[in-house]
């Protein structure tokens, strides 16, 4: 369970997050939606400690993570798997080395065991036998799936997805959406998905949260989102340029 309370961060002159409250219940997939530039990625980076808020609190399984020393933060981070928008694969390494990196760094598993685990995770994401390839020779969708295999290498309790379907064709988007769902069913992982892709959001969400002007302005199930009369939510899910949200 992740509890975010009154999270505030200012970047330059802009108050990016202005009191975010959000609960991510264990075992659920929560989709955080919002327009580009509303601070979705900033929220995501705060949760994993890549950025530090000016004030507010983030609790992971009851443990406060804001302002804790790096050593403790790293222990928390080991419970997380993160899929970055571009996959963030290390292009100096092969696919197999990428997926195996967290295992080599944090466990004392023998090489053979690591290779087995890597092959296993790659198979989970539908990419059997690509260990020897370099990231540069992969397509966008394959990169994301390798990134996902790396994110789940350590059997995390949480997975953070940053725009998992951005830049993918509709078919590959669906593949990713199904993977997100199947991982939740398979290993009972708690997921946070940051996206502005409504299709993807409906597909994977147990709960949805809409971020607007630095605050969470709506939380609810996908059905509640569809039936709400809240004009901000309506405008966002209908994708209209007219309404309370002003285009920048």
């Amino acid at each position: 369970m992740i509890k975010i309370r009154d999270l505030k961060i200012r970047l330059g002159k802009k108050q990016v997050l202005n009191g975010v409250d959000l609960d991510i219940p264990t075992g659920k997939t929560v989709v955080v939606m919002g327009r580009s530039g509303t601070g979705k990625s900033v929220l995501f980076k705060n949760i994993i400690g890549l950025m530090h808020p000016d004030s507010g609190s983030i609790e992971v399984d009851g443990q406060e993570v804001v302002g804790i020393p790096e050593k403790e933060l790293n222990e928390v981070r080991k419970r997380f798997g993160v899929l970055f928008q571009s996959g963030a694969l290390f292009d100096s390494m092969t696919v197999g080395e990428n997926v195996g990196l967290p295992l080599r760094e944090h466990t004392k598993l023998p090489d053979a065991e690591i290779r087995k685990r890597v092959a296993d995770r790659l198979e989970w994401v539908g990419l059997k036998g690509v260990e020897a390839m370099k990231p540069a020779s992969l397509s966008g969708g394959m990169r994301k799936r390798v990134g996902l295999a790396r994110a789940i290498a350590m059997d995390p309790a949480y997975i953070l997805y940053d725009e998992p379907t951005t830049g993918l064709d509709p078919i590959m988007s669906d593949v990713i959406n199904r993977l997100i769902r199947s991982l939740q069913e398979r290993i009972g992982v708690t997921s946070i998905v940051v996206t502005h892709d409504m299709n993807s959001a409906y597909h994977v969400a147990d709960e949805m949260a809409l971020l607007n002007e630095g605050r969470v302005v709506f939380t609810g199930t996908p059905d509640e989102a569809r039936s709400t009369s809240d004009p901000i939510v309506r405008q966002f899910i209908e994708g209209s340029s007219e309404g309370p949200i002003k285009p920048l």
Binding site: G49, F80, F84
Partner: peptide, 8 residues
């Protein structure tokens, strides 16, 4: 960022 996120 990915290294940081992996606690490396």
């Amino acid at each position: 960022d990915a290294l940081d996120a992996m606690a490396i």
